[in-house]
């Protein structure tokens, strides 16, 4: 039932997104813009551009993800449907799950399109692509679930556009640190165990978030 209702809500979100043509295009555009701005900010003559790739990639995904998260509940706010979507047969869980999946789809597609662009722009190559892809997957899952939780909690809060990153970025710090490290290591021939220990940290983080977020969400939205 949880899955059926989640699918129902996700289908709705996808349909709304397809018709309003709103968030996704902007997210991608914003991500591209970030890359360009970072190039202006960080590239120096005489230094290898490739060295900037890990930082640029992860910070861009963090920022672009925020754009999506800030609009995640826009359709609910506009039509006054939030309380209807929270009160389903399976409680508020389908809402959080569908919003997390929605965010994951958007950030996942953005990442897939962005990664080659960053590599080309910064003239870099991934010596070991597998760990980077794994780190991206783990990082995006954590960002999506935690981000959806924070966005859901802040829906009625004043200045939420400002508060969301203020709360989210420190909470996402382990993922950012680990993701950048894995990408740095994957550019060279780092020993597998070092990479694995960082990936393990990210997986542990995701587990903690996945285990706690639904409960916290339910606890806060119930009257």
């Amino acid at each position: 039932m949880l899955l059926r209702l989640t699918w129902l809500l996700l289908q709705k979100d996808l349909r709304v997104a397809a018709r309003s043509r709103e968030v996704f295009g902007f997210m991608l555009l914003f991500a591209l813009l970030c890359v360009v701005v970072f190039a202006f900010g960080f590239l120096r003559e005489g230094e290898a551009a490739a060295a900037q790739v890990p930082g640029v990639l992860w910070v861009t995904l963090l920022f672009a993800g925020t754009v999506g998260l800030l609009r995640l509940f826009a359709a609910e706010e506009e039509g006054g449907t939030l309380h209807l979507a929270q009160r389903t047969l399976a409680g508020p869980h389908p809402l959080l799950l569908s919003k997390s999946l929605m965010q994951l789809i958007f950030s996942g597609v953005t990442t897939l399109l962005l990664l080659p662009v960053v590599l080309v722009f910064f003239d870099a190559a991934l010596v070991q692509p597998a760990p980077v892809l794994a780190a991206l997957a783990l990082g995006l899952v954590g960002q999506a679930v935690l981000g959806a939780l924070v966005a859901a909690l802040l829906v009625h809060v004043r200045l939420r556009e400002v508060l969301l990153p203020l709360v989210l970025y420190p909470l996402l710090a382990p993922l950012l640190i680990a993701g950048v490290r894995v990408t740095v290591l994957a550019q060279g021939n780092a020993p597998a165990e070092t990479v694995d220990s960082w990936l393990g940290l990210m997986a542990g983080y995701d587990l903690v978030v996945l285990a706690t977020a639904p409960w916290l969400h339910a606890r806060v939205v119930e009257p």
Partner: peptide, 12 residues
């Protein structure tokens, strides 16, 4: 729990 993970991450 997140602070613990931040601790582990910044330590590494």
């Amino acid at each position: 729990p997140v602070a613990y993970l931040i601790h582990v991450a910044v330590q590494k």
